[in-house]
Design a protein around this nucleic acid. Sequence first.
DNA 1: ATAATTGCAAAGTCTTTGCAGTTTG
DNA 2: CAAACTGCAAAGACTTTGCAATTAT
Lengths: 145, 145
Amino acid sequence: MSHVPPATVEEILAALRLSGGRITTTRRATVETLLANTDRHISADDIVAAVRARYAEVAESTIYRTLSTLEELGVITHMHLDHGPATFHLADRRHRHLVCRGCGAIIEAPADLFAGLVSELEGRYGFTLDEEHFALTGLCVACRG
Amino acid sequence: MSHVPPATVEEILAALRLSGGRITTTRRATVETLLANTDRHISADDIVAAVRARYAEVAESTIYRTLSTLEELGVITHMHLDHGPATFHLADRRHRHLVCRGCGAIIEAPADLFAGLVSELEGRYGFTLDEEHFALTGLCVACRG
DNA sequence: ATAATTGCAAAGTCTTTGCAGTTTG
DNA sequence: CAAACTGCAAAGACTTTGCAATTAT
């Protein structure tokens, strides 16, 4: 809560550099793609496509490796919306995801909705909830019939 | 809440039969394996192994097909504890799962811990939470350092 | 120079599918 | 007998890995 992770392309690349990493065109493009899509839920494959379209050829494996490097750096996180590919986003996103298993709709819920559960788990089990790693699945109004 | 799904081998097989399905040795063995492991979190592969060890040869695909048939019947559900294979269990299990991403420990939490969240989501978004489909990941006391 | 990154192709894990042969009711 | 189930082998989706060639610093 006290530390805000880097949020601009340059800040992220600087953090990468600081950790001993190198800045390449592909890595910059990857970071730009992530920042340009903070409002979407993008998969590794989406990023591959975006980088290929606007910058240069990339191997999938390079993207996967860059993504895990950024994840180790603490800059991004991945999340599982449901079955299917993981999605990646900046680590500072502050909302939780509800995914409808009927139509696939994604509802974003404010983090404070989970505050009670988080402290309950903390208190009773000493369990620190990783609220983002899996979305919550269920059925939306339209799909529950 | 008013309907309790079948909980014995015979009840489950009867339900299967009623829906037009057929009862085979492998299917019976699969159901028995599921019932013999209500306290564990077993994957399709675990079931394949159990059936092969105690009953007969089975193809993986047969187990997967049987599991989805049972799932469509509403008798079982699958759940994702974390990355890795899905786990299967009877649909009537009434607890939620907390999985430590450090050591893999699984903590079972009573369903009522989620009651507040469930009604909140229902009220605010009309979203019916499928509490079981994904476990909640995080860090246990020992691993959070 | 040299350690980090990349591409490519191959492998890995989990799951699904097609199809011909077998079995259940 | 007809519909349902099975095995086998192949494919599919997503992700990881090995290794030699390239590139950033």
